[in-house]
Every structure is written in C-alpha cells, then in structure tokens.
C-alpha cells in the first residue's frame, strides 16, 4: 500500500500520457522560454526512463505483464511513436537510448495476444522512411537504426521496406565511412534479407535483375574488404535457404556470377575464400549446369582442383570437407558439353 504515503502513484497509462504531452511540447518547442524548456525536457527524460523501467524492470523488480500491456495499449492508442521519433533528435543521448529501448520492447509486447505495434506501424508505415533516412544523419543513425531493426521484426513492415525505393540506398549505407553506422546498416540489411523467408523469396524473385546486379557490382566486387566479406557471407545465407531455391537456381546458372565467385575464391583472405566456397559449391553441384558454366569449370579444372587440395577451414568442419569432396568429384567428372 505504497499509495498511502505517496500522494499520487502514477499508473503506466499516466506515464504514457504525460510523456505524450511533454513530447507534444517538445515538438513545438521554439516558442517557449529557455528555463521552462529545460525543466520540461528533464521531465520528459524522466518519463521515458520510467517507461523503460516498467517494460524491462529494474534492479529491484521484474516487469509486470499487466503494467506492460497497459503501457503498450496507451502508447499505441494515439500517435506517441510518431512524436517520439520526430522529437528524438531533441533529446539528450541517454534519453535517446532509453527511448530506443522502449520502442524496441514495445514491438514485442502483446495485448490480448495481439501485437498491436504491428497494426500501428502498418497504419503509419511512413515512419519507416524517417527511420531509414536516419542512416544519413551521423548523430541519429544508431538510434533510428536500432528502432528500424526492431520494426522490421513485423513481416508487413519488412515487406514495405524491401519493396520501397529505400532498398537501393542500403548498398551505399553499408559502405559509409563511419564504421559503426555502416555496420548497423549492414545488420539491418541482413535482417531484411534473411528474417521473413517467404517475403524475402518473393522480393528476390520479383527484383532479381536489379538486386543482384547491384549486389554483384557494389558489394561482391567492392574494393572494401569487409564489404566483400559480409556480402559473400550473406549471399551464401540467402542462396542456401531452401525458401530461395528458385533464386538460387537462377543465380548459379549465370557465368558472370560464376566469374565473380571464382575471383572471390582466389582472394588472399581465408574468411572470404571459405564463404565464397559455400556459394561456389552451388554452381558445381547444380545438376543442370548450362554449357557455358560447364566450359568455364572445365577450362579451370586443374586450377580449381589444386586450390581445393590445400583448402581447409581453421576449425574442423565435417560438412565443409564433405562439400569439398563433392565439389571436387563433380568438377573432376565434368565433360565439356557440345554447345548447341
């Protein structure tokens, strides 16, 4: 009965409401006096922190699901998320981080076994545009990036981002000079292309041409070591996923793709070589190899066999050895096809 001593125990709903009021204030901030503004911003920070501690618990107490549900419901009942995203640049670093964590948690809160965050975002999908363009703002990139990654947990949101014009920008974002931002964008890119299998498969089939053209030229053939390394790893993840088998078949029938992968196989970086092998093996294992693929493999047979002879992973990897043996067998058995 804490309430006896504290005049007004605030409910989660109260906290959200007050946060929203303060955010609205912050949103139109320019027309207020300096001192009052600081007080309000301080109060806003406190409220956001309180939301965080309701959602995550704190050192004394675990989160209470009922309170979380109430908070979530109130938060999405009105346009709080939009306000929060819009005002984020006006908050201080610690509050930005708190807000990011609050938004992250809210994506996973269920109210009456429904993810109301998903419904909200579907109705306010333009918020994604704001979050994505955050990568162009050094100061906001990591906050917006983290929020974005949480939002694309929802399949509908991921689909929107995949099909939007933003998708093309990621090829540049992941090569931004600021390593932390580039790395954050890379994590989002990977999430987009691996998380929701059916959506990804659909996206890749529909956008095959431009996507892989960009992927090959901007990422796999990038001059940046880490870009190549990440890209070839992600490519393997995508192509080896069963849901993407149609895309895979198409990919491994192209001699240009084979050329790129063979060049990656020759890299001096072991990590890249190994990842490249996991894609290359698909070319070799393809039972319906087009004639030009066969002829390239035949023409380079001895080089490839020599390469694979000394090719091993750092750690023992039975699967890798088995794959390698298979690839060697396939290549050794190839007969040049008649071109028709």
């Amino acid at each position: 009965m804490k309430g006896l001593f504290k005049p007004k125990p605030r409910t989660p709903v109260d906290v959200v409401r007050q946060t929203r009021d303060l955010l609205m204030f912050a949103d139109r901030m320019s027309d207020t006096r300096e001192g009052k503004r600081e007080d309000k911003m301080l109060e806003l920070s406190k409220n956001i922190r309180e939301m965080k501690s309701i959602l995550y618990g704190n050192s004394e107490s675990e989160p209470v699901s009922e309170a979380c549900a109430q908070l979530t419901q109130e938060f999405f009942r009105e346009n709080t998320l939009r306000l929060l995203i819009r005002c984020l640049p006006k908050l201080n670093l610690e509050t930005r981080k708190d807000a990011t964590q609050v938004v992250a948690n809210l994506q996973r809160q269920q109210v009456h076994s429904k993810l109301i965050a998903s419904d909200y975002l579907e109705a306010n999908i333009d918020l994604m545009d704001t979050l994505i363009s955050g990568y162009e703002n050094t100061e906001m990139a990591l906050h917006y990036g983290a929020m974005l990654r949480e939002c694309i947990r929802h399949q509908s949101v991921a689909r929107y981002v995949l099909e939007s014009a933003h998708m093309k920008k990621f090829f540049d974002y992941i090569q931004l000079p600021n390593f932390d931002i580039a790395a954050d964008a890379a994590a989002t890119f990977k999430e987009l292309l691996t998380r929701h299998k059916s959506t990804v498969a659909e996206f890749l089939s529909k956008n095959y041409d431009w996507f892989f053209e960009e992927y090959n030229s901007k990422l796999l053939e990038s001059t940046n070591y880490i870009t190549r390394r990440q890209a070839v790893k992600l490519l393997g993840d995508m192509l080896l996923d069963r849901s993407n088998s149609a895309v895979m078949t198409r990919y491994v029938s192209s001699r240009d793709n084979l050329r790129i992968l063979m060049n990656l196989l020759r890299e001096s970086s072991k990590s890249i070589q190994i990842e490249a092998f996991h894609v290359f093996k698909l070319f070799a294992a393809n039972q319906n190899k087009p004639a030009d693929i066969v002829s390239i493999l035949v023409a380079n047979r001895s080089k490839l066999l020599r390469l694979f002879a000394n090719f091993k992973t750092d750690k023992e990897d039975e699967q890798f050895e088995a794959d390698k043996a298979q690839v060697v067998k396939e290549i050794a058995a190839l007969e040049p096809k008649e071109r028709t």
């Binding site: 994506q107 996973r108 809160q109 399949q155 998380r195």
Partner: peptide, 13 residues
C-alpha cells in the same frame, strides 16, 4: 524475459 517475449512475435518465422 525479453527472450520470451521475443519469441512471442507471431510474425517472426
């Protein structure tokens, strides 16, 4: 805790 609620996302595959 988060892990649990993380799993609850029906949209995740």
């Amino acid at each position: 805790k988060g892990g649990e609620s993380g799993e609850s996302s029906p949209s995740s595959t």
